[in-house]
């Protein structure tokens, strides 16, 4: 009997069970430890207390999540645009690629701890430095993925389309660009996990609002429960963005799902 679709879903759910179990038991152990040991919530708050703080401070958390999300999206949009634009320039001009690539590599060696305060110093406490830092952190994985992706194009496909009389631009659009898409999504998934963290770090260094500011203030007033509440929100944001990327990938790379499915 064939029930391909339900079986697929059933397997997906079954596959998720171990992950859910391990996460739930980790929190359970943490909760039990805090209750049995009687450790001060100023040292280690229980998960139930963190959850409680999220509910109590929901207005504060929400008001500070919005600026963080703004910085994340603006920074990511900037980095996506720059990575795409640059990757096309680099693909058409190998000499420029050889000249500029080392600079991009160096940009990734800069310690964020040192760079972030300088960027805030230069651009102030508003959105700009946060956007720049998010872009700086996220653009490199996408650029490398795109450049490598173009180069992965099947030479037979390129020979074929060239034999049809295609121009360099046509070859790029019809062959090289689609070939790079699986690579691009691999880079995108890496980048997106950095984005929220980078925004929060930038806020931590200097901002008017944002989850980074919540964390900074809570730390200074010895409230680890609120620190962790903000951490939970930031993790959730990253997870949601990651899921959105995965969904987008499934839509764009639908042709890959059929492979090995003859």
């Amino acid at each position: 009997m064939q029930h391909p679709v339900p079986r697929q879903t059933g397997r997906g759910l079954a596959r998720g069970i171990p992950a859910v179990l391990s996460v739930v038991s980790a929190f359970a152990i943490w909760e039990i430890y805090v209750r049995l040991s009687g450790i001060s919530p100023l040292m280690l708050p229980a998960p139930s207390r963190v959850l409680d703080q999220i509910v109590q401070n929901r207005a504060l958390l929400w008001n500070n999540t919005v600026p963080t999300l703004k910085a994340t999206f603006a920074g990511f949009a900037l980095s996506l645009t720059v990575a795409f634009g640059l990757s096309i320039v680099l693909d058409f001009m190998p000499r420029v690629r050889r000249a500029l690539f080392p600079i991009f590599v160096v940009s990734q060696t800069l310690p964020l701890v040192a760079i972030a305060p300088l960027v805030v110093l230069w651009f102030g406490f508003d959105l700009t430095p946060k956007v720049l830092l998010v872009a700086l952190v996220t653009f490199f994985p996408m650029l490398v993925a795109l450049v490598d992706g173009y180069a992965s194009t099947d030479p037979e496909i390129e020979d074929l389309i060239r034999s049809m009389g295609a121009t360099r631009v046509q070859i790029f659009r019809a062959a090289r660009f689609p070939s790079a898409m699986p690579y691009f999504f691999a880079g995108l998934r890496i980048s997106i996990t950095y984005a929220v963290v980078a925004a929060i770090f930038a806020e931590y260094v200097g901002a008017r609002a944002g989850l980074g500011i919540v964390i900074l203030n809570a730390k200074n007033s010895f409230r680890p429960d609120i620190v962790l509440a903000a951490v939970v929100i930031s993790s959730l944001l990253t997870l949601i963005l990651f899921a959105a990327t995965a969904l987008l990938q499934r839509i764009v790379l639908r042709w890959r799902d059929v492979e090995g499915h003859r």
């Binding site: 099947d154 496909i157 020979d159 062959a175 689609p178 790379l253």
Partner: peptide, 16 residues
């Protein structure tokens, strides 16, 4: 070049 249509050894169909 426009006089020829070329069929390569492997099919070179674009998988996407």
């Amino acid at each position: 070049q426009n006089s020829f249509a070329f069929m390569p050894q492997r099919d070179a169909l674009m998988p996407w």
